[in-house]
Simulated scan of single mutants.
Amino acid sequence: MSMRQHSFLDRLIGHADQVLRTLAPEAARAGRPSPAGARAEAGLNADERRQVAGFMRINHTGEVCAQALYHGQALTAKLPAVRTEMEQAAREEVDHLVWCEARLQELGARPSVLNPLFYAASFGVGALAGLAGDRWSLGFVAETEKQVVEHLQSHLSTLPLNDQRTRAVLDQMRIDEARHRDMAIAAGAAELPPPVQGAMQVVARVMTTTTYYV
């Protein structure tokens, strides 16, 4: 028996469920255990704990945005193969979302209250990118992941040296994001015009500046 083809309405309902799983606390489930594993908790002082919590709040919101971007693109992608790759990448990003949320809890901190706003904005960008065509949609993925890898590397370089739990999580996220970037490029991503890349960097700075605190 052939598998039933999902209609646009089916996918819309599925994405509504994904929205709730992304934004509701502890609703998402990771497919992989946290890279933090059994690493001992570092003896962070108050300032270090505040800094790491700010970093993880940024990264958690980044994963919320990644979920929204991939969901929006998958909803409007024209080629089934591209849609499948977007959905698979989104599933892998769920791991990052759960790992970041768990680390925030360990630090006694909470996710950003701005997550619903950033989700909505990122979903709209993803949907528009999908409508523009799969090459442009993949281009957004490639550029987004490129910037995320650079952003994660900057956090890794400034983390307290003894915080091995956070370092393990961010390092695995960096590896995964680089793979998603390479996947998009191999699938035929178009290079985005410099003004679009610059606009994405500005939006990223707004997100990181605000969610570090709230």
Rank of each mutant, 00 (worst) to 15 (best):
A90D: 11
T76L: 09
A89H: 11
S34I: 08
A27H: 13
Y119Q: 01
P80T: 13
R32H: 10
T84I: 05
V141E: 05
W99E: 10
Q153R: 14
D95N: 15
E145T: 07
K78A: 07
C100L: 14
G133M: 07
F140Q: 07
V149M: 05
E63T: 06
L131S: 00
A24R: 11
E26S: 14
G72P: 07
E63I: 06
Y119H: 09
L97Q: 02
T61A: 08
H60W: 07
G108H: 08
A90M: 14
R49T: 06
Q51S: 10
L152N: 09
E143V: 04
R110S: 11
A132E: 02
E63A: 06
R57N: 06
F123A: 02
G72M: 05
W99K: 15
A46M: 03
L79W: 01
L128Q: 06
A53N: 08
G133L: 04
D95G: 09
D134W: 02
D95R: 10
E150I: 04
P116W: 02
H151P: 01
E145A: 09
E63V: 05
P116C: 04
G37E: 11
E106P: 12
Q67K: 11
L152A: 04
V125Q: 10
F55I: 15
A24N: 09
N115M: 00
F55M: 15
T61L: 01
R110G: 07
A129W: 02
C100H: 12
V113C: 07
R57T: 06
L131R: 10
R83L: 00
E143P: 03
D134S: 06
A102M: 14
V125R: 12
S137G: 12
A109E: 06
L79E: 11
G43A: 13
Y119G: 00
R39I: 12
L44G: 13
Q153K: 14
V98I: 14
A81S: 12
A66S: 11
F123I: 01
H151N: 07
R49W: 03
N45W: 05
E26A: 15
R49V: 03
F118N: 03
G130C: 00
I58H: 03
T61E: 08
Q88I: 13
A24V: 12
Q51N: 09
L152I: 14
L107G: 08
P111T: 10
R49F: 03
R135C: 00
L23I: 00
F140I: 10
E145F: 11
A66V: 05
R83H: 02
A40I: 09
